[in-house]
């Protein structure tokens, strides 16, 4: 049963994945002027500095002299095999750049996701259980501040406090150089916003569940408060929270772009921004494609998780 559903869901995500690929392909062709010039990382002023033969060679290589549909199919076939072309700016294969950057971003996302889930759910529960009391006000205050703090600014403030004023953590550097210490501040910076969103959802969902009769029954049965909240409350309140968590990927990736850049973490976000600064269209295409595909897959994962937690749901 589960495999059939999984298979159906996988097939359903194919058009979306194709669409994301098309979007990434179109990005390269939207640039005003000659895509060959753009692919070489030059703008229109750089046009005159390029030898006509060189330009012709690049056009040939990119297949720009073929009809656009042929170009698209060719590009897609190569992309499916993990070949995103060779960057004209750095003369390194884009796939190599992307796969080198991927582990850092994945690690960062997994860490921020875990932190924001733990913090968010705990805050939300505290808020709901102590509704209208001090604990609730503090938790809600943290949540509203968390939602309103710009991630990149928070990253700078954290850096100023814990890397410059009190030098506990490195100002910048990769996981390879400093290990977990390099990830601590970036994780905190990115996790704040999703944690606050999760806490808000958890609070309202938990409040609704706690007003149900079954909670009264469970309490009347003589169960401990802990058991009532954690087993009966949480289990029934978690579904909408999972949906919110699922939506956090885009949020996290968005945060990761700026934060990786601030802390010079060599991840996908930094790659994308460097690609943008260098006007390296192929790198931009590759990064957008990988991020889009990862997002589609994370949606799939959330749906599956949903089914495991709540067997009534069948997609």
């Amino acid at each position: 049963m589960l495999t059939t559903v999984l298979l159906r869901r996988l097939i359903f995500s194919i058009p979306t994945l194709l669409g994301v690929a098309t979007l990434a392909f179109m990005l390269g062709h939207m640039s005003p002027g000659d895509p060959a010039i753009a692919a070489m990382g030059l703008d229109l002023e750089g046009y005159s500095s390029v030898e006509p033969e060189e330009l012709e060679r690049v056009r040939e290589e990119l297949g720009l002299n073929k009809p656009i549909l042929v170009q698209y199919v060719g590009w897609l076939t190569r992309a499916l095999q993990g070949d995103f072309g060779t960057s004209y700016v750095s003369t390194i294969e884009v796939s190599e750049l992307v796969f080198e950057a991927l582990p850092t971003t994945m690690l960062l996302l997994v860490m921020t996701m875990s932190v924001s889930i733990v913090v968010g759910i705990s805050l939300g529960i505290v808020s709901a259980v102590f509704k209208g009391r001090t604990g609730d006000y503090i938790a809600r205050m943290i949540a509203i501040i968390g939602v309103s703090t710009p991630t990149f600014w928070f990253a700078l403030v954290l850096m100023l406090c814990f890397a410059v004023a009190i030098p506990i953590f490195p100002v910048n550097g990769s996981f390879d150089e400093f290990g977990w210490k390099a990830m601590a501040l970036p994780t905190m910076a990115i996790a704040l916003h999703p944690a606050a969103l999760i806490a808000r959802m958890m609070r309202s969902s938990m409040l609704e569940v706690l007003s149900h009769d079954m909670i009264r029954t469970a309490t009347a049965k003589g169960l401990s408060r802990w058991r009532v909240y954690m087993v009966h409350g949480l289990r029934n309140a978690i579904n909408p929270v999972i949906t919110v968590i699922g939506f956090q990927f885009a949020n996290l990736m968005g945060g990761a772009v700026a934060v990786e850049f601030i802390f010079s973490l060599p991840g996908l976000g930094s790659l994308l921004i460097e690609g943008i600064y260098e006007k390296d269209i192929l790198v931009i295409q590759g990064a957008v494609l990988v991020i889009g595909v990862a997002f589609a897959l994370s949606n799939l994962l959330v749906d599956l998780l949903y089914m495991i937690i709540d067997p009534r749901i069948r997609i």
């Binding site: 990736m253 772009v257 997002f295 589609a296």
Partner: peptide, 8 residues
């Protein structure tokens, strides 16, 4: 369009 994070 929703599959690519807004900022990206």
């Amino acid at each position: 369009f929703m599959s690519v994070p807004g900022i990206v």
